[in-house]
């Protein structure tokens, strides 16, 4: 294709998106659109898969059967969300194995929030309430993104996600209204998860390199700072309801803007964690790669069994 032809196709393509038309897998798309989508969708899928690890730690330690079934269901949902998203990503012409490989070699990123440890049961509450809360804010606008398979996957994800946040808030509520030790535990979890949750919504608009292009492709419908403000505005009253204190002395309602003002985010910490130096980066990758490698013989055995069954079926057919 000549440069002029590509340019022409690109213009038609951009116009389709501007008209809110969806792009489907076999449609022509600019290489940059494909690459950007592979990067974002796979990063999202990896986050779901790695996100199971900090919670998996607490399944066998859940304080009651009610909490245990809920946590199990939530972790199972996350596996499902990872699968929806991997499938959507594969429609862009990359294989599942390549995607796993990118995760396991550190070439692809996942949400930095999962590189923090889950040290008490209250962390299950804080993660559901704050981390899933921030995730929902990020994900809802994606239900109307321009790439059809991604938008469809996100609709399913969002439908299932709201129980995650509610079960987390319920855990926090129970602890906050419990013994003084339980309330301390809830406060401690909020102290540790608050700032990482704010960072989870991404670097500030000034630092975010992909925002402008992503907005155009509807891969992003609000900027990181807008999403962060929305998260803070809706979460502060929830913390009040719990009787817990958000660990930010600069947090206060601003009558003029109609939003909460908040303190400085420690972006050095964010970039350290993104670059692999968070408290649990090594452990998460070791667990993930270990699970994949230790499962190799199971995947091989399943395939060998399937082939043997197929062969036997064909032999019988031939004999008849």
């Amino acid at each position: 294709m000549s440069e002029k032809e590509v340019k022409n196709l690109e213009e038609i393509f951009e116009a389709r998106i501007a008209r809110d038309e969806k792009i489907e897998p076999k449609d022509w798309m600019p290489e940059k659109y494909r690459k950007t989508h592979i990067r974002q969708i796979s990063q999202h899928a990896h986050s779901e898969i790695v996100g199971m690890l900090p919670e998996g730690n607490w399944i066998s330690r859940a304080p009651s059967l009610r909490r245990k079934v809920a946590l199990l269901a939530k972790v199972q949902d996350e596996a499902g969300h990872g699968l929806y998203l991997y499938s959507a990503c594969e429609t862009l012409g990359i294989s599942r194995n390549e995607l796993y490989d990118q995760l396991h070699t550190g070439k692809a990123k996942y949400s930095s929030i999962f590189n923090y440890p889950t040290v008490t049961w209250a962390d299950m509450g804080a993660i559901g309430w704050l981390v899933d809360g921030a995730a929902i804010i990020n994900q809802v606008p994606l239900c109307s993104t321009s790439y059809g398979p991604y938008a469809r996957a996100m609709i399913r994800v969002c439908k299932e996600e709201s129980f995650h946040q509610r079960q987390g808030f319920e855990i926090m509520l129970k602890l906050a209204n419990g013994t003084p030790e339980q309330k301390d535990m809830a406060q401690d979890a909020l102290n540790r998860w608050w700032w990482p949750s704010l960072m989870m919504l991404g670097p500030t608009d000034a630092e975010s390199v992909h925002t402008a292009q992503s907005m155009k492709w509807k891969l992003k419908r609000k900027t990181n700072d807008e999403l962060r403000q929305q998260f803070i505005d809706q979460t502060v009253p929830q913390a009040d309801l719990l009787g817990l204190t958000i660990p930010d002395p600069d947090l206060k309602w601003n009558e003029e803007t109609g939003h909460y003002d908040f303190g400085e985010i420690d972006w050095d910490e964010f970039w350290q964690v993104v670059k692999g130096y968070g408290p649990s980066n090594k452990k998460r990758m070791k667990d993930r790669v270990g699970a994949w490698e230790e499962g190799t013989w199971v995947r091989d055995a399943a395939m060998a069994y399937a082939e043997k069954k197929e062969k036997r079926k064909n032999d019988i057919k031939r004999a008849i």
């Binding site: 499902g80 699968l83 996957a153 399943a302 069994y305």
Partner: peptide, 18 residues
């Protein structure tokens, strides 16, 4: 949607779970 499985039977079981 879609998924990976070794054979049809496993695809059905996984589809049920996913």
């Amino acid at each position: 949607g879609s998924l990976h499985a070794a054979d049809a039977e496993m695809a059905l079981e996984n589809a049920r779970d996913v």
